[in-house]
Design a protein around this nucleic acid. Structure first.
Lengths: 136, 136
DNA sequence: ATTAATCCTATCAATTTAATAGGGATTACA
DNA sequence: TGTAATCCCTATTAAATTGATAGGATTAAT
């Protein structure tokens, strides 16, 4: 299941990408427009800013803006920041690899084999989709 | 993340598919062979039996067996029984559809759009993989 | 100064997950 | 016929995660 955090985060990014005048977009505006609890959204946008996907401007007339054009923001990056590993099990994760504590040998593990395929097919989608695609 | 339930369930099915003499395979045997807590595994196999994927024989020398040859057991069915919906959000699920409470219009929703692609690519893998593929 | 925004930390309730416990029902077989 | 081995079923629990809220600190425009 996609977490609400990720869902809200994706919606917020799309919202910002769609607005794009030059001035930053405020949390309250996004929260209202997308039916997202404002305080929750605040923490999500903070995460996106710390990861470098968003920039922010503080104080009055502040808000959030994209650090790159939507066409250069890949879903692989967004999803890893918001949802964490793309793989369904750590033992097939490219960026968050961990060995299973059961499982003496990965290469004989049926789950491993299946989950590599799922990971690759999901990656293909995320690598092939940018924020621009979402906001059209 | 794949739940342990699903992981254990897949391992158990593979184990049974690999053994296949004619006599049913016992929970204890699987638990030992795959490092799975026995009581937990019991409940998982029970689920698989109730869904029709496994059959069982009670009493001494009892155990579980596959109801169909491994080559006819599709991952779509197994995954839906063990893990639930294949889609990451209910609003793109084929078998467990639910409308989002936020989201006035699905067809304008960026998350929806992305998650349909993920669902389709994952489905392609599961529809194209049988238990036989896993147990080779 | 005042106002309006982001930033940050802590907390909380609800849910889900992973596992355990304890016994009931059924069957093989001595 | 009795006993051991096995599946069957329900209930409980501890830990982790999720989704959300609260309260205020900091920053910047006017």
């Amino acid at each position: 299941m996609l977490s609400k955090k990720t869902k809200y985060g994706l919606k917020a990014l799309t919202f910002i990408a769609r607005v794009e005048g030059d001035s930053p977009v405020q949390v309250g505006e996004i929260a209202k427009g997308e039916n997202i609890p404002q305080k929750f959204l605040e923490s999500i946008l903070l995460t996106l800013r710390k990861s470098g996907i968003l920039g922010s401007k503080k104080g009055k007339h502040g808000g959030y803006y994209l650090r790159k054009p939507p066409s250069e923001i890949l879903m692989t990056d967004v999803m890893r920041v918001l949802e964490g590993p793309i793989a369904m099990v750590p033992c097939v994760s490219l960026n968050f690899y961990e060995k299973c504590d059961d499982c003496p040998d990965e290469h004989q593990c049926s789950v491993h084999k299946l989950m590599i395929q799922v990971r690759d097919s999901t990656l293909k989608v995320f690598r092939n989709t940018t924020l621009e695609d979402l906001s059209i």
